[in-house]
């Protein structure tokens, strides 16, 4: 379990320092696979709800979402050099502070359960670093990666709870994720992958 959390954490942090969008997409893939591993290790028997969650992680989060974004980036000939966060000491320090704050916060939340501290610390770091990427990124591709990181972090948070939602709700969550990825891809394609989102004077329609 702990090594899966370490893998998740490395998949979150390393792409921040590697100048490549491919590394970021691989990071998303590893995060999803690590979470699938956690469900597999945790489950005494696979009830419908965890089974749907497992399928969601393996099919959509580990395979479909990164593959779809990669295909679009390749089609558009996006250069491989791509910074998720600005490559300077200030932002790196900020990222480090966010990670430390996350672990400090999770220690307060988890009390004496050390396993929970690691799990919550990693999940909190994911949420905060996703928000950091989102706030510093201007390119739609980068913002899309940040959003998927946020989704994965929330999913990791969910894995900390032992309660499983009803299978209908779990299925709904999976459909929402899939539709979000499709909407994301549609808009990213329209906006362009790496250009800044255009700032046009708004001109409303008349319907």
């Amino acid at each position: 379990m702990t090594f899966l959390l370490v893998a998740w954490f490395l998949a979150l942090c390393l792409p921040l320092f590697i100048r490549s969008w491919r590394a970021a997409l691989t990071g998303l893939r590893i995060q999803a696979l690590a979470m699938a591993g956690m469900i597999w290790l945790h489950a005494d028997h696979l009830a419908p709800s965890p089974l749907i969650a497992l399928a969601d992680l393996l099919l959509f989060r580990a395979f479909f979402a990164p593959w779809y974004l990669k295909r679009m980036a390749t089609e558009r000939g996006v250069q491989s050099a791509f910074d998720l966060i600005p490559a300077n000491l200030f932002v790196w320090t900020l990222a480090a502070v966010l990670v430390m704050t996350s672990f400090g916060f999770s220690a307060t939340l988890a009390g004496e359960y050390s396993r929970s501290i690691t799990h919550l610390g990693v999940a909190c770091s994911g949420v905060l670093l996703a928000l950091l990427i989102l706030s510093t990124q201007r390119a739609p591709l980068g913002q899309a990666i940040a959003l998927l990181t946020l989704e994965n972090s929330i999913a990791l948070f969910e894995l900390h709870a032992h309660h499983h939602v009803e299978w209908m709700a779990q299925l709904g969550l999976t459909v929402v994720y899939l539709l979000s990825v499709l909407t994301l891809a549609l808009l990213v394609r329209r906006l362009g992958m790496v250009d800044d989102a255009p700032e046009h004077p708004a001109d409303s329609a008349i319907l």
Binding site: V176, S180, L187, R190, L191, H200, D203
Partner: peptide
Amino acid sequence: ALAAVPMIHHQRRDSATTAAWHYFLFSAV
């Protein structure tokens, strides 16, 4: 929210697409 995104950029103007993108990001967060 997911149904609203394509409605916002229904007429496919750049300003509407940018607005739809921002709406989607903020909504997801």
